[in-house]
């Protein structure tokens, strides 16, 4: 059943590594409460966590997880900074590439995109099984 109704959720935390874990748990718990199947919850944790780590590495001013529940899917959007990713070593650069790779492999619509306000974001969505 299609509906025009949508619910919006978000959390804002200080842009510090210590808050990546709590923000990741928020994303996973939101998915759980929304009815996302258990086998996908670990993937949500990974994707949210990677997007948050990229946010810090690109000097985001805040650690934010936004989600919208609409038309049977939960749409995540994690704002990124516009600073350069840390590239102290070849390993750091490799990990930055793997970070986005993980998100796009886990969720086929995962992407580095631009928000309606023109800011860099990571987006992906998760299906919500119908509760018929």
């Amino acid at each position: 059943m299609s509906t025009d109704l949508e619910e919006r959720f978000w959390i804002d935390l200080r842009p510090e590594a210590a808050y990546v874990g709590p923000a990741r748990i928020f994303g996973a718990e939101l998915a759980r409460q929304s009815g996302v199947s258990e086998e996908i919850l670990d993937d949500v944790k990974v994707a949210v966590g990677e997007a948050l780590s990229r946010a810090l590495n690109t000097k985001a001013l805040e650690l934010r997880v936004k989600a919208v529940l609409r038309d049977g899917r939960l749409f995540f959007e994690i704002p990124q900074g516009d600073g350069l990713e840390s590239s102290d070593s070849s390993t750091d650069r490799l990990m930055a590439a793997l970070s986005l790779e993980l998100i796009t492999v886990l969720f086929e619509d995962g992407e580095a995109a631009t928000s309606e306000e023109g800011d860099p974001v990571i987006r992906f969505s998760v299906p919500i099984p119908s509760r018929a």
Binding site: V46, G49, T91, S99
Partner: peptide, 11 residues
């Protein structure tokens, strides 16, 4: 749980 930062440490 382990993310790409952890992978980097292992590498």
């Amino acid at each position: 749980f382990m993310d790409s930062t952890g992978l980097g440490v292992l590498i």
